[in-house]
């Protein structure tokens, strides 16, 4: 299996969901304040008029961050695009993206917005060349994902399943972290 070139990690809102409009001034301010370390923040794109989209987008050189209305539930997504760590492995990319995504979430948690449910997330491989084709490859992806999530969340109580949906969609995993270790996350 190829190493994925683009990974999307989405965290979901529960009942209390912010409006797309709230992210426009917020993302512009993040650019002014250079809020995300290790990211060259470039611009803000407004697609709130498009249902099921990355409705409000903060574009960086390395990644995009978005208030995300795709799928059934709105959430916040971190999409890693480039500037990967030197180790070109699936494990390294997953762990790195997840760490960066959690950093972005941490910055978001400081804002006056509804909170995300961090115990439930989705990872999509936005790279159709890198979709696991065999059971062996799928097992490798599951192991690598579990390892990355365990590492970052500080728990092994994790359930992962493949998103069984429209076959045209990029390969994705749904992840539930059962016993979230708050201290590990904060660290």
């Amino acid at each position: 299996m190829n190493t994925p070139q683009r990974l999307k990690i989405k965290f979901f809102y529960q009942d209390d969901v912010p409006a797309a409009e709230q992210f426009l001034p917020l993302f512009h301010r993040w650019i002014q304040e250079d809020r995300l370390a290790e990211h060259l923040l470039l611009d803000v794109a407004d697609y709130k008029h498009v249902p099921n989209s990355l409705a409000t987008l903060l574009v960086a050189h390395e990644a995009d961050l978005a208030f995300d209305t795709e799928g059934d539930k709105p959430g916040f997504s971190y999409i890693r695009k480039r500037a990967w760590p030197e180790t070109q492995t699936l494990d390294a990319r997953l762990e790195f993206s997840l760490a960066q995504a959690l950093n972005a979430v941490e910055a978001l948690e400081l804002e006056d917005l509804p909170k995300l449910d961090l115990e439930s997330l989705e990872i999509r491989f936005l790279d159709r060349l890198a979709i696991p084709d065999t059971q062996e490859e799928l097992d490798t992806v599951l192991v690598a994902t579990k390892k990355a999530v365990s590492q970052l969340y500080g728990t092994h109580d994790i359930s992962i399943c493949q998103l069984k949906e429209d076959k045209r969609r990029a390969f994705g995993l749904s992840i539930k972290v059962k016993r979230l270790c708050e201290e590990a996350l904060a660290a």
Binding site: Y47, L126, A170
Partner: peptide
């Protein structure tokens, strides 16, 4: 076009005023 929009652009397919398609934020 949908696949490419999410893999290389910002997830949006834009129809232009001359019947073409555009992606933005492409490296």
């Amino acid at each position: 076009l949908a696949d490419l929009a999410e893999e290389y652009a910002d997830g949006i397919i834009h129809v232009t005023t001359r019947q073409a398609i555009q992606y933005h934020f492409v490296h």
